[in-house]
């Protein structure tokens, strides 16, 4: 198993790109740059989904997130006049240091857990070992499916998860009505005469 294959190279390239864009989202003072780098991070995550053989999810990620949601963000930013938004992100304060420390600790826990898990002998979770675990699983109603195909995804969506699917449609209706009602209200949530 010497040498990296193409999936490993793609993982490291897109993974590094995603992390870099995510850091830039947080540390750019101007929100419009944050939005653009968030779109970049979403697109690279879409590429990672492609590497993971989730083709439908990958395309949905790029159209829904990098397309629709980001257009929504940029439109709202255009509505605001945020030129005087001189936010001092890198200002050193005791509270800021505590926040940074806490997040660093959380990140360290994630990395440490992954590192420890990769060290446990005989428990290496690979594609083949987990798949063979599933063959012998007691839960026999889980059929081995082709995870790359949209057919098997939609079959699950419209049989096992059909109630959740319908519930999501109701949620979307509520969100549409709620956002229109919120955005139309005069002077925000307060009754002020202008």
């Amino acid at each position: 198993m010497a040498g990296l294959n193409i999936e490993d190279v793609l993982f490291y390239a897109f993974g590094a790109g995603t992390v870099l864009s995510a850091v830039l989202v947080v540390f750019f003072a101007n929100p419009i740059y944050s939005a653009l780098f968030l779109a970049l991070a979403m697109s690279m995550l879409g590429a990672l989904f492609f590497v993971l053989e989730a083709y439908f999810i990958s395309v949905a990620q790029i159209t829904v997130y990098a397309g629709a949601v980001m257009v929504l963000f940029v439109m709202v930013l255009m509505l605001f006049d945020l030129k005087n938004e001189g936010e001092d992100i890198l200002k050193v304060s005791p509270l800021g240091l505590i926040k940074l420390l806490a997040v660093g600790l959380l990140c360290g826990f994630f990395i440490g857990t992954g590192w420890v898990a990769s060290k446990i002998p005989g428990k290496v979770i690979s594609e083949t070992s987990m798949a063979s675990d599933q063959q012998t699983a007691i839960n026999k109603d889980v059929q081995p499916v082709d995870i790359g195909s949209t057919v098997s995804l939609s079959r699950q969506l419209f049989s096992k998860y059909v109630f959740a699917f319908e519930a999501v449609s109701i949620l979307l209706l509520v969100a549409i009505v709620g956002s229109v009602a919120l955005a139309r209200s005069k002077g925000g949530t307060h009754h002020v005469s202008r």
């Binding site: 993982f11 992390v19 997040v103 660093g104 857990t113 290496v124």
Partner: peptide, 19 residues
Amino acid sequence: VGINHYLVLSGILFSIGVL
């Protein structure tokens, strides 16, 4: 690359979001 790599990457992204 195994599943650990993806979990660590996801953890890093989540931490950046929390930050």
